[in-house]
């Protein structure tokens, strides 16, 4: 649905996007991840034909953005970082205007306007001036205008920026529900958002493509040390977390054991082992032979946040390690 090949954008002195290539197939949700100023918006603007690339090519729905911009735009719904609203217009007039701009008319226009009002839950502010809408409603009206012509491709630039937590959840759900019928690219610098909404992730930093993969693969790829969470409970009364920890540390191949959670007769430990060493079997045997209950034994997935920090800069490595406990807990 979208193919990007060696796309480059140079400004007067800086290179905002530097030879990036990726492709997105139909119906996917792709997260476009990067720190501020990484070139996310620039890439999206090239895809939406807002400005042309300096070099390289991109096609959207089979149309080249440089040579067939009008056809490409017909297949794109775009929500810029700030929703492009005319504050002196009423919501419904605005949606009608956008619909007409995208080529809808007559009965079809009425139908689509009614549909997007319902889909994006903006029906109750239909006749309000948009200047009086709250940030959350503005964002939803922005989404509504992006999908009004039922485009094949949706390009959303930080769709949840500036919303309150409930609105963020609602917007994410809305976006997820739009997948399937639309191919979606959304940019964000919020990592859990990608983990929760996207199937694929493209990470860029300083204009360069750092990684592109499915969310699961990325997590697997960047698990530096094998990290295992193990939940142990005592069968009988005697239970002392430090002593258990000590015994876990004695298992061959284990490099570090951290107590994550401790209750009266149960505890959760995170066990780190050297990469490639299979210690799970030994751990399980130890627990069972010592007469404890093994409630859970699972690999601790690395959160995207850590991957992101690892990929996008050495200077954040320190932050990455200090952030680990909260993120994995």
């Amino acid at each position: 649905m979208i193919t990007v090949h060696d796309l480059t954008k140079k400004y007067a002195r800086t290179t905002a996007v530097d030879h990036i290539s990726f492709s997105v197939s139909k119906g996917q949700i792709v997260g476009f991840l990067g720190p501020n100023g990484a070139g996310k918006t620039t890439t999206m603007r090239m895809l939406t034909c807002f400005f042309p690339p300096t070099a390289g090519e991109a096609t959207v729905a089979g149309f080249d953005v440089l040579t067939q911009p009008l056809e490409a735009r017909r297949h794109i719904g775009y929500l810029p970082e700030t929703p492009p609203l005319y504050l002196e217009m009423e919501t419904v007039d605005y949606l009608r205007f956008v619909g007409q701009l995208k080529g809808l008319s007559g009965e079809e226009l009425n139908r689509r306007v009614a549909f997007v009002c319902e889909r994006c839950a903006v029906g109750d502010v239909k006749h309000k001036l948009m200047g009086k809408l709250s940030k959350g409603y503005r964002q939803r009206v922005g989404l509504a205008q992006a999908i009004i012509h039922n485009p094949d491709v949706l390009i959303l630039d930080e769709p949840t920026a500036g919303l309150d937590p409930r609105q963020i959840i609602e917007t994410r759900e809305l976006i997820r529900s739009l997948a399937g019928e639309h191919t979606i690219i959304l940019s964000t610098h919020i990592l859990p958002e990608v983990e929760q909404t996207c199937e694929q992730v493209i990470i860029i930093n300083k204009g360069k493509l750092v990684a592109t993969d499915s969310v699961e693969n990325l997590q697997a790829r960047f698990r530096g040390v094998e990290s295992i969470l193990i939940d142990i409970a005592a069968r009988t009364g005697a239970f002392s977390a430090p002593s258990i920890q000590e015994r876990l540390e004695q298992v061959a191949g284990v490099s570090r054991v951290v107590c994550r959670d401790q209750q009266a007769n149960a505890a959760v430990f995170e066990v780190e082992s050297d990469k490639g060493r299979l210690v799970r079997g030994d751990l399980a045997r130890l627990v069972v032979e010592a007469g404890w209950d093994l409630n859970e034994l699972r690999p601790a997935a690395m959160s995207l946040e850590e991957i992101f920090l690892q990929l996008t800069g050495a200077e954040s490595a320190a932050a990455s390690t200090s952030a680990t406990p909260e993120n994995n807990a």
Binding site: F50, R73, I76, P80, T82, V98, L101, K102
Partner: peptide, 14 residues
């Protein structure tokens, strides 16, 4: 200033 220019220039309009 309002950023609505992005709507106009990304719509299928000359």
């Amino acid at each position: 200033r309002n950023g609505t220019i992005e709507l106009l220039t990304t719509s299928p309009v000359r």
